[in-house]
Simulated assay, not measured.
Amino acid sequence: MTAPTYFARRPHQSRFTLLRGLRHHVLQWGGNDELDANLPPLLMLHGWMDVGASFQFVVDALQEQGRRVIALDWRGFGLSAGSGSDAYWFPDYLGDLDALLDAVSPEAPVDLLGHSMGGNVVMSYAGVRPGRVRRLINLEGFGLPQTQAEQAPARLTKWLDDLKTPQELKSYPDLAAVAARLMKTNPRLSEAKAAWLAPHWSRELDGARHILADAAHKRANPMLYRKDEILATWARIEAPLLWVEGACTDLSKFWGSRYPRSDFESRLAVVPNVQREVLADAGHMLHHDQPEALAASIEAFLA
């Protein structure tokens, strides 16, 4: 039987741009002839081990056709160049985002959306550059468990050991195997969407499919996650925030008892203006699970 096919309603245009000297892949939906100059661009930033094309299903579900929608492949993910180093640092994502905004909207504030890791980046950015963000949307960018100073020696030791260890990502025999891997990670992902994502999430090399990500991302991060610094940044956010999560997401599956829900709630409470949405029958990849419901929430919020 022929596998079901997903047809993109609004195909994206693909281009490359230099951000801080590094070649980045940028996706855009909406040609110049159909854009409403009065609508700010909506920038979408993906999570760890994902790609900008991951937002295709949500963009297809958006009813507003006049808004320019832009997605970025973070450095070392998708078709963007790797950093050339043996490790990746969170502040570099802020620097890349700042450079992207200089390129696409140097004068006017933008609407900013991030998922998971991307959600953490846009939250920090909106606190550091509050005047550059009109509306802010965080899709399950929970942050990380608080760390303690006494953890620093072990973290640094682990990082030094990882630097001496070659990092690898699993390869797959064909696109069908890549799609199967995506569905295993997210059982709610349909076969048609998985088949559409597979060629955007991997590339063919030497007769196999390889994930479009720098394996150096797997190395331990030697920097401690300091909750007080995050709270100081989040408290500076001026843009209204839409927080969206899946009803089926369970924080304990990520971090066990190290990051209780009450801790996250206390963090979110410092943001001055928060609207919350919970999407039924959706997990962490809610932009794949319920793109229509998510698109409706996004458009209502941006309007």
Rank of each mutant, 00 (worst) to 15 (best):
G283P: 04
L101F: 10
L62R: 00
P153N: 12
H217C: 11
F77S: 01
A81L: 11
P272W: 10
M285D: 02
G76K: 04
M183N: 05
V58F: 01
H25V: 02
S252H: 13
D281F: 08
K184A: 11
G127T: 07
A215V: 10
T233C: 09
N273M: 14
L43W: 11
G207S: 11
V122A: 01
L39G: 15
R23T: 14
L205P: 11
L144I: 06
I230T: 08
P173C: 11
M44N: 04
L112I: 12
A247L: 03
A247N: 09
A180N: 13
W196A: 15
L43S: 01
Q28A: 09
L205M: 15
L18A: 15
D50R: 06
N221D: 13
P91I: 06
M285L: 14
E238L: 04
L79N: 07
L94W: 03
Q290W: 00
V122P: 00
A152M: 15
Q146M: 08
H24T: 02
L139I: 04
A295S: 06
A216R: 13
L35P: 01
G30Y: 05
D228K: 11
V51T: 10
P41Q: 08
H288Q: 10
A232I: 04
N120E: 12
L251C: 07
L189C: 06
F254H: 07
V69W: 02
A192H: 04
V69N: 00
P272Q: 14
L42Y: 07
G127L: 05
A296W: 15
